[in-house]
C-alpha cells in the first residue's frame, strides 16, 4: 500500500480511545444493563471499574491522557444516590475544579467528561457513549499529549 493511501485509510478507520472510570454501584451497573438489554454502544470506550466516583483521583485522568487516551470519562451515581452517601458529591467538587485547572493550562476540557448514570439507565449509558464517541471522533487525536509523548527535553 502506498504511504498516501495508508494515511487515508488510517484516517477513516481512526477510532478514538476513550477511558471511562465507572463507579461500581451505578454507572458500571448501568453499562451492564445496556449490554443485557442489547443496546449497542461504540467499542471505543474502555471501562475501568472503581468503587466510587469519589475514588477517582485526577491523577487517574492525567495518567490516562499520558498513556494515549483521546478522552476520559468519569461516571458515578446521581447526586443523592451514592452508595457511600457522599462520594459523588466530593467527586463533583474535585473533578470540576480539576477541569478548570486543565482549562487554565490551555488543555482542551472537552476531552474530560463527567456524567451521572444510574443502574437503571442503560439507555442513557448507550446514548451517552454514542454521543461522546462521536465528539471524540470529530475532535480527532488528542495531540496535546501525543506530542508530549514524543517530545524530548531540550
Amino acid at each position: 500500500m502506498s504511504e498516501e493511501k495508508q494515511n487515508q485509510s488510517e484516517k477513516s478507520q481512526w477510532q478514538p480511545r476513550i477511558v471511562a472510570f465507572l463507579c461500581n454501584w451505578c454507572s458500571y451497573a448501568g453499562a451492564d444493563l445496556a449490554g443485557m438489554s442489547r443496546r449497542g454502544y461504540p467499542a471505543a470506550i474502555k471501562v475501568i471499574r472503581v468503587p466510587c466516583s469519589g475514588k477517582v483521583d485526577p491523577m487517574f485522568v492525567l495518567k490516562s491522557f499520558e498513556r494515549g487516551a483521546d478522552m476520559v470519562l468519569v461516571s458515578g451515581c446521581h447526586p443523592g444516590d451514592c452508595h457511600y452517601t457522599s462520594g459523588n458529591y466530593h467527586a463533583r467538587r474535585k473533578l470540576l475544579a480539576f477541569r478548570e485547572l486543565l482549562d487554565f493550562f490551555g488543555i482542551d476540557q472537552r476531552r474530560f467528561k463527567i456524567s451521572w448514570v444510574s443502574a437503571a439507565e442503560g439507555a442513557k449509558w448507550s446514548s451517552l457513549v454514542k454521543e461522546i464517541t462521536a465528539e471524540a471522533q470529530a475532535l480527532g487525536p488528542f495531540k496535546t499529549f501525543a506530542t508530549m509523548l514524543q517530545g524530548e527535553p531540550s
Binding site: P58, M59, L62, K63, E66, K94, A97, F98, L101, L102, F105, F145, M148, L149, G151, E152, P153
Partner: peptide, 24 residues
C-alpha cells in the same frame, strides 16, 4: 509511579498539576 520524575514536559506538567490540586 503516578508522576514521572523525569524533567520532561509531561513529567513537569503532571508534577505541577498535582501540586496545584493538592494545594487547592
Amino acid at each position: 509511579q503516578w508522576v514521572q520524575t523525569s524533567p520532561h514536559l509531561r513529567g513537569n506538567l503532571a508534577w505541577n498539576v498535582t501540586r496545584a490540586l493538592h494545594l487547592t
